[in-house]
Design a protein around this nucleic acid. Structure first.
Lengths: 152, 152
DNA sequence: TCCTTATAGTAAACTGGTTGTCAATTACCC
DNA sequence: GGGTAATTGACAACCAGTTTACTATAAGGA
């Protein structure tokens, strides 16, 4: 089946593209938020807290980000040390504080979002909205397929 | 401009999808080739040599993969120690040997490719070829846009 | 030829993530 | 209420990659 083979090739090339894009996006993302004294990793952690809308515990943030609790804890400790995140006592758990953006952290995140939108706009330049949305859905479908296999 | 904003949102969601997909693909890729005593990283190095068609030096492999020469050297040293790659004297350079797949390395890579095609086939299931190819081109366009910025 | 520059392997420190272990705390069930 | 199981932060070891630095070799030009 030639058609089948073409689908396989297309998926394979999408996979390779994802690997290359991931590296390039992280690299440029780091550059983008460097003036704000952020890194991609720190930015992502701030985003997880901002998205949640209310203070979160470390395991909650890790779950939202899809990384291990120990991994995110490193970034959280650093972000607290840098004053981007504030640690508040958790009335429901003595050892697991609630983490919220500080004023400085919120400001850095807001500025990062502005930069991000400029960046995304320039990246999408010249690509029709319909194609972008179609690509978005294909990637979402691949994600869904992967996570359903992961669950098994 | 609502249309403009939608494009920005679509690009942003594609970016986030790429991050999540990258993590999931690496995770499942590791599982895929684990029976062959490979990891995603080792697999990728074998692929770079296989693609080249002839023995390569470490810096050539690094350049082809888009990573630093020091980073790839770690994997190369490990792969040589595992017998996946053979080091041959380089008549053109005393200190920089030519690296080629061993019989064992070639066999492992061939098996990995078979597994990969089965994997890609199942991932693409249910997605029309036209959409896959369109998504592939969108990603390629984003890559091109990113690398042209990188070059500056 | 000799001097300078570029290339190559090695190594250490660092980033960002993982797994595994530990002790303390919390949650649950009888 | 009390005992057991799950959760949590801290720590250590590891993987995969980067940057920086050092030394040895190649390459190229005056």
């Amino acid at each position: 089946m030639a058609k089948n083979s073409k689908s396989i090739d297309a998926v394979t090339e999408i996979i390779l593209s994802v690997f290359r894009l991931n590296a390039q996006l992280l690299e440029q993302g780091d550059r983008l938020v460097q003036p704000l004294s952020l890194t991609s990793a720190r930015w992502q952690v701030l985003g997880a807290i901002a998205m949640a809308g209310e203070p979160q515990t470390a395991p909650q943030i890790a779950a939202a980000m899809g990384v291990t609790r120990q991994g995110v804890q490193k970034q959280l400790n650093l972000a607290v040390a840098e004053g981007l995140i504030e640690s508040h006592p958790n009335p429901r758990h003595q050892r697991s504080p609630l983490l919220a953006l500080s004023v400085k952290g919120q400001a850095a995140y807001d500025e990062a979002m502005v930069l991000q939108r400029v960046w995304a706009k320039s990246l999408g330049q010249g690509l029709p909205l319909s194609e972008l949305q179609s690509a978005k859905q294909v990637l979402a479908a691949l994600e869904h397929h992967l996570s359903s296999v992961n669950a098994s």
